[in-house]
Amino acid sequence: KWEEIAERLREEFNINPEEAREAVEKAGGNEEEARRIVKK
């Protein structure tokens, strides 16, 4: 599940997989929260 979210974030925000994974981890697997983290 987290991998899927990280993949979507990576494609959408054009970030590297590591950044995407970190955002999802910080968000506890919550996609909306992960998006907010990435946008900062």
Rank of each mutant, 00 (worst) to 15 (best):
A6N: 03
E19Q: 12
E3Q: 15
K40I: 13
E32L: 09
R35H: 06
K1Y: 12
E33D: 10
R10Q: 11
A34T: 02
I15C: 13
I5T: 05
I5V: 12
V24F: 04
G29W: 04
R35G: 03
K39P: 04
E25K: 12
R10L: 11
K26A: 13
N30S: 11
I37G: 04
K39R: 15
A23K: 01
N16G: 14
E33K: 09
E3G: 11
N30G: 04
E19G: 04
E11K: 14
E18R: 08
A23L: 07
V24L: 12
K26N: 11
F13W: 03
A6L: 10
E22Q: 14
V38W: 00
A27Q: 02
K26Q: 12
A34D: 00
N30F: 06
E18H: 12
N30Y: 06
A6V: 13
E19W: 09
A27T: 06
P17T: 09
K1L: 14
I37D: 05
K40R: 14
E31D: 04
F13R: 06
I15D: 07
E33S: 07
R10F: 06
I5S: 03
R35T: 05
A34G: 02
K26S: 12
A27P: 01
K26T: 08
A34F: 00
E4V: 06
R35L: 04
R35N: 04
L9F: 02
E7M: 13
R35E: 04
A27I: 01
E32N: 08
L9I: 11
A6I: 15
I15V: 12
E3S: 09
K1I: 11
R36G: 07
V24I: 14
E31C: 06
K26E: 14
V38D: 01
G28K: 12
P17F: 15
N16A: 15
E18W: 09
G29V: 02
R8V: 05
N14R: 03
E33L: 10
E12K: 02
K26P: 02
K40W: 00
A23F: 03
L9A: 00
E22G: 10
I15M: 08
W2D: 05
W2R: 06
V24C: 07
A23V: 08
E4S: 11
E18A: 09
K39L: 08
E12C: 04
K1S: 12
E32K: 09
A6Y: 07
N16Q: 12
E33N: 07
N14H: 11
A23M: 06
A23P: 00
K26V: 10
A20H: 00
R21Y: 14
F13G: 05
E7W: 03
A27E: 01
E33Y: 02
E18G: 08
E4T: 07
R35M: 04
E7D: 13
G29S: 02
E7F: 05
V38L: 12
E7Q: 15
E31L: 15
V24T: 06
R35Q: 05
A6Q: 07
R35I: 09
R35V: 07
R35F: 00
I15G: 05
R10Y: 08
R35Y: 00
E12W: 02
R10K: 14
V38Y: 00
G28W: 12
E3W: 10
G29E: 02
A20K: 01
R8P: 00
K1H: 11
E22R: 14
G28E: 10
E3R: 09
E7K: 14
R8S: 05
E11W: 07
A6W: 07
R36A: 11
R21T: 08
K1M: 13
A23S: 05
R8H: 06
E25G: 08
R10G: 11
E18I: 13
K39V: 15
A6T: 08
A27S: 08
R10D: 06
L9P: 00
L9V: 05
V24D: 01
E22N: 12
F13L: 14
A27W: 00
E25V: 12
E11Q: 12
G29Y: 06
A20W: 03
N30L: 08
E32D: 11
I15S: 05
E32P: 08
E3N: 12
A27F: 02
A23C: 04
E22Y: 05
R21K: 11
A20F: 03
I15F: 02
R8N: 05
E31Q: 07
N14V: 05
E22T: 12
E32W: 06
K40N: 15
E19R: 05
N16V: 07
P17E: 15
R36H: 10
N16M: 11
R35D: 02
R36W: 00
V24H: 01
E4H: 07
E18M: 09
N16P: 15
A23T: 05
I37L: 07
E25L: 10
K39D: 09
A23E: 01
P17Q: 14
R8D: 04
I15P: 07
E33W: 01
R21H: 10
A34I: 02
V38K: 02
R8W: 02
E25I: 15
P17A: 15
R36Y: 00
E32C: 11
R21L: 14
N16T: 15
A23I: 12
E18D: 14
V24S: 02
E31K: 05
A23H: 03
L9N: 01
E3D: 12
E3T: 12
E31M: 12
A23Y: 04
A34Y: 00
R10A: 15
G29L: 04
E31A: 10
N14D: 13
K40A: 15
E12A: 03
E25H: 12
R8T: 04
P17I: 15
E7L: 14
V24Q: 01
K1R: 09
E7I: 14
E4F: 04
E22V: 13
E12P: 00
N16Y: 07
N14F: 10
E31V: 09
E19S: 11
E22I: 14
V24Y: 03
P17H: 15
F13E: 09
V24M: 06
G29K: 03
N14T: 05
E4Y: 05
E4P: 04
V38G: 04
R10M: 15
A27D: 01
K1E: 13
E18Q: 11
G29A: 03
K26R: 14
K40C: 10
A34S: 04
I37E: 06
V24P: 00
K26D: 03
R36M: 09
R21V: 11
A34K: 00
R36N: 14
R8I: 07
N30T: 04
N16W: 06
R10E: 14
E11F: 08
E7N: 15
N16S: 15
I5K: 03
R21M: 15
K1T: 15
I37V: 08
V24A: 05
N30Q: 09
R21Q: 11
E31S: 05
I5P: 01
N14C: 07
N30V: 11
A6M: 11
E32F: 08
E33V: 09
R36K: 13
E11S: 08
R36F: 00
A34Q: 01
N30D: 13
A20V: 04
E32I: 11
A23G: 03
I15T: 10
A34R: 00
E22A: 10
A27R: 00
A20Q: 01
E7A: 15
R36E: 11
V38M: 03
K39N: 13
N16F: 08
K1G: 14
R21C: 03
P17R: 06
E25Y: 05
A6H: 04
I5G: 01
E19H: 08
P17C: 15
A6R: 05
N16E: 15
A34W: 00
N30E: 06
E33I: 10
L9D: 02
F13V: 09
W2N: 07
N16L: 11
G28T: 06
R10W: 12
K39G: 13
G28D: 12
E33A: 09
K1W: 14
E32R: 10
G28Q: 12
K39F: 02
W2A: 07
A23N: 01
R8L: 09
V24G: 01
F13A: 10
E12F: 03
E11N: 11
K1Q: 13
N16R: 06
N16H: 10
A34P: 00
K26I: 09
N14P: 13
K26L: 09
V38F: 00
A34N: 02
I15E: 07
R36T: 09
R35S: 04
R21E: 09
E22D: 11
F13I: 06
N14W: 06
E22L: 14
G28V: 09
